[in-house]
Design a protein around this nucleic acid. Sequence first.
DNA 1: ATGACCTAACCATTAGGA
Length: 259
Amino acid sequence: MRLATWNVNSVKARLPRLLEWLATTRPDVLCLQETKCAATAFPTAEVGELGYAVAAHGDGRWNGVAVLSRVGLDDVARGFSDEPGFPDPEARAVAATCAGVRVWSVYVPNGRTPDSPHYLYKLTWLAALRDALAADLSRGPLAVCGDFNVAPTDADVWDPALFVGSTHVTPPEREALAELRRLGLTDVVPTPMKGPHPYTYWDYRAGMFHQNKGMRIDLVYASGDLAALVGNAYVDREARKGKGPSDHAPIVVDLSDGS
DNA sequence: ATGACCTAACCATTAGGA
């Protein structure tokens, strides 16, 4: 199985690039974040022509997640039980079972600044996600993919000194990721196509991508049985190039047969 | 060259991203 995740920063604005990428990369399952459209407005027919079924969760302008699959899409769950909101739950998680693998696409709240109510929301949301995953993990192989808005280590930001006091790198955020790993989830660290750091996000501004000043904030967390099947895993930085890219690059993970 | 913000929404200014 080829599993991928991509924060597309609007599925409508990215549709031509998304379709081209699907046709060439041919993932079996793709998790999308920041689709920024209502579930009813998702371009289901367009991706359907490429053989993908869609489980979309979205309510308009902000957030929005989806799972695309060409190997089955069962037991779709939009959101999860006791999911925190701000104040109401947002479209930040969708799960489906694809060829026997429970796949989650998540878009973790940004947090803005450590003194913001949004930061507390982020930590609360991650703790609730942990509980929801714990319940799901007993059912079999599972992968949580998405934009976690947390850089797991200082090596995952281009200049750690610049991020002191900022969100995305604070100990409580990193501890929330550690809590996910304690469930038995493994951080599937992808190979960078260029340079030593598998960054997945580069700000649009100031030529950050061209200088490779990025962050690794998009993650694939796999249950142990699934992590053992990981072959090649890489960040597709080619998808960050050219005209009209997302500010995030996709992660592609190849799992050997048996998944 | 990869090339110096982008997106969606009460349409033009703003919230949000990280």
